[in-house]
């Protein structure tokens, strides 16, 4: 009798211990599952929130309201210069802070302005601004916006030439300071005005600048300057010949054979043809003195 009782007690205790162990194991499993679920939720939530937030932060661009005046193309991202009837089209992707663009401009500006004046070419500029990405700078974007402000009042090309003539070192983000861009604008007769300064300071064409860069990102071209002559890359070489003022002129003339040239207003043509002047009609002597 007593032995039976003993056996019954022991087995009851064992059963209780087993029960407790089972419960603990179940609780541990539950906790582990909770940790796994929490971990996965944290990861999924972060990704979803991230995509939504970054989508919201990417500026929306509307060609109808956000592009500067006189821009062309499907979504008005291009700045045209020169007579639209000119037989050859030169497409130029440039970043205001890009040193290779400055070298291209310094070497080719006079030739290009002469070709423009002769009605042989029209230019379509894409003003990129990706150099800011490398050091979270602001100079390219500020300068691109200022160029858009100049485009809006018909002074893009003159201001473009002034900016390249005064470009800071690539590592120096001098144009993060917008007042420098405004003081450079004083070298372009008729550009500086309270509304121009407000346009520069308020980053009025910021979403356009972003849209132009986004378009460049997707273009497949990956460096500036990218120069196309009638769609064929012309920098640094064209049909495996190096670009130079003489070569470029020859390429354009060959491409234009048998095609009528565009006519330009004589005053603009005269100004363009002069190697020292910017391509706007000469304004007051005082304003245009002091730079060449």
């Amino acid at each position: 009798m007593s032995t039976k009782n003993e056996v019954g007690k022991r087995s009851a205790r064992e059963r209780m211990q087993e029960e407790r162990a089972r419960e603990e194991a179940a609780a541990r499993k539950k906790r582990q599952l909770a940790v796994i679920v929490t971990t996965l939720v944290v990861i999924a939530a972060a990704v979803v929130i991230g995509i939504v937030v970054q989508n919201g932060r990417s500026s929306s661009y509307s060609a109808a309201t956000d592009a500067p005046g006189g821009t062309v193309g499907n979504t008005r991202l291009l700045i045209p210069v020169g007579g639209t009837a000119a037989p050859s089209t030169v497409t130029i992707y440039e970043d205001p802070r890009c040193p290779a663009c400055e070298q291209f401009e310094t070497a080719m500006k006079t030739t290009i302005n002469q070709l423009l004046a002769q009605g042989k070419i029209q230019i379509q500029y894409h003003i990129a601004s990706f150099i800011d990405r490398h050091d979270s700078g602001k100079g390219s974007k500020n300068a691109a916006n200022a160029l858009a402000c100049a485009q809006n009042v018909g002074r893009f090309h003159d201001y473009h030439d002034v900016l390249y003539a005064n470009q800071p070192q690539e590592t120096d983000d001098a144009w993060a300071d917008r007042s420098i861009l405004i003081s450079l604008a004083k070298q372009v007769p008729g550009l500086d005005s309270p509304s121009f300064e407000a346009c520069v300071n308020n980053n009025t064409y910021g979403s356009w600048v972003t849209a132009v860069q986004s378009d460049f990102d997707k273009s497949g071209y990956n460096s500036t300057p990218t120069v196309l002559l009638n769609g064929t890359p012309a920098y640094p070489t064209y049909n495996s010949k190096d670009i130079s003022p003489a070569n470029f002129t020859t390429w354009v003339d060959n491409a234009n054979k048998g095609k009528p040239l565009a006519t330009m207003p004589s005053a603009s043509a005269e100004a363009l043809a002069s190697p020292t002047a910017h391509n706007n009609p000469p304004a007051s002597g005082a304003a245009s003195a002091g730079h060449s």
Binding site: A46, G50, I51, Q54
Partner: peptide
């Protein structure tokens, strides 16, 4: 989606 989402995936891993 990848450009926007990956940095946050990295941050979530960092936090965990």
């Amino acid at each position: 989606p990848f450009g926007y989402g990956l940095p946050f995936l990295e941050l979530a891993v960092a936090l965990l």
